[in-house]
Amino acid sequence: MSDDVPGRLEPPLVRLAVVCEDVDESADGRPAIIRFPVHTLQFPGLLERNYQVPGLVLYLQLQGGFGSFDLRVRMRRVDGSREVTVSPTYRLILATPGDAVPLELALKLNHLVFPDPDVYELMVYVGELNLHEPRDAAPRPFPPVVVAALPATGAEGGVV
């Protein structure tokens, strides 16, 4: 978190987080359609390790908050044992205190690699604060987004 916006910093709440293939906008630039929500995918062919998927999108609704934050996406195994990948930071500026209309973001996750078949979870951080963990302002936060990566079956399967 930083002090680009003067005043007391208030991290936003995650209202909704969905991994998908893309988000379409309406003619006026408003988000309209979440395309192909992703919860389970499969390693292709005979691949066993280090599968880089085509760029998935993390659709995010952030509610409230005030200040300037370094937003980052982290992915770890669902048992919490090890973090496997992290994004660079994106400077998130929330300049309207008490804004009731959520901010919607489509974060394209390039070069996302699943090291091996397992269940993973994606989490959004501002600074060092994990927005999916309970805090005073968010006693029941939105949970991390779970994506399961199944082992390959030797077939190419339902390729997009």
């Binding site: 988000v23 906008e25 006026d28 630039g29 408003r30 988000p31 996406v73 992915m75 090890r82 973090e83 496997v84 990948t85 992290v86 994004s87 660079p88 994106y90 209309v101 959520p102 901010l103 919607e104 973001l105 489509a106 974060l107 394209k108 996750l109 390039n110 070069h111 996302l112 690699v113 090291p115």
Partner: peptide, 15 residues
């Protein structure tokens, strides 16, 4: 009632 979508590209890096 909604704001314009903010699109961000992030290059994920292994830890």
């Amino acid at each position: 009632v909604r704001k314009p979508l903010v699109r961000v590209e992030m290059n994920m890096e292994p830890v």
